[in-house]
Design a protein around this nucleic acid. Structure first.
Lengths: 147, 147
DNA sequence: TATTGTTATACTCTATAACTATA
DNA sequence: TATAGTTATAGAGTATAACAATA
């Protein structure tokens, strides 16, 4: 297959498909709601704290491309359910370090998280080369969001 | 080993990244708002009517993975701005065929659509092989939503 | 009786603005 | 004066439920 860089005109027609596809996936994920009552943002924060350790509100907001006030709302809801806890920053009294609790870790590990399980099952149904394409596209989608 | 399908464990770690990436892109797109005051759903409907011709509320709702009532709201807003018009179905008095108007076509063609232009510019900044990966991933994302 | 669409209402998610506290 | 976070409010986007009209 010859490598032919896409023209701007051909890319333009893909813009609608991409936004539609992304919107569809998000609506689908949102509708998958079982025993877990965590939404996508809450799951995202929990996953990030699990991977990266304690973080501040501002850092989490930046990582998720969200306003700090919006992240504050998410963290408050997670704290109320005992999934994250707040710890003082060692040197800066203004900052608050949010950490995942044991209960939060349980929620992430346990079965019953309908959204994650649905998406995982859907991913597993793709052919191996399709999986590779989709996984390779993830960092590219992130790059788009940051440009 | 020729083909190395990803293990379920390795895929599980990608689930969070995918949802986060998709959420980020959507928030970014939503925030790009210039002279056009059309949101992503409105643009999606307009694009679909442009490509596929007149459609009913139910068909549009199915195409965008949305409830008919939600689609009705979107269509009402587009109609109020004169971007779509309603025509009776030739044989079924219950159905309404929505078609894009000339003004709707203008809006789609003209410059000033901040969301589409931003995304197009971002796509053009990717390397050709990255573009190909991302475009190849679009139908896969749709498949996920439908499974 | 089933289907298409409308109307009314409520919920989820995120943003903006104004404020407090610490640096 | 600048930054981190909180509180209050508003908005966009979508869903659910109840209804009307046509099939």
């Amino acid at each position: 297959m010859v490598k032919t860089p896409r023209s701007q005109a051909s890319m333009a027609s893909s813009v609608n498909e991409l936004t539609t596809a992304v919107g569809q996936l998000l609506r689908r994920l949102r509708s998958e709601t079982g025993t877990d009552e965590l939404n996508l943002s809450q799951l995202g924060v929990l996953g990030r704290l699990d991977q990266q350790g304690p973080m501040t509100t501002a850092d989490l907001a930046r990582a998720e491309s969200m306003k700090p006030q919006s992240m504050g709302t998410i963290l408050a809801s997670l704290e109320q359910e005992g999934l994250v806890e707040r710890n003082p920053h060692p040197s800066d009294g203004r900052q608050v370090l949010f950490a995942m609790t044991g209960k939060g870790a349980d929620v992430r590990r346990k079965r019953g998280n309908a959204k994650r399980e649905w998406l995982l099952a859907a991913l597993m149904q793709l052919e191996p080369d399709e999986q590779r394409t989709l996984l390779d596209a993830i960092p590219l989608i992130k790059r788009l969001s940051e440009s």
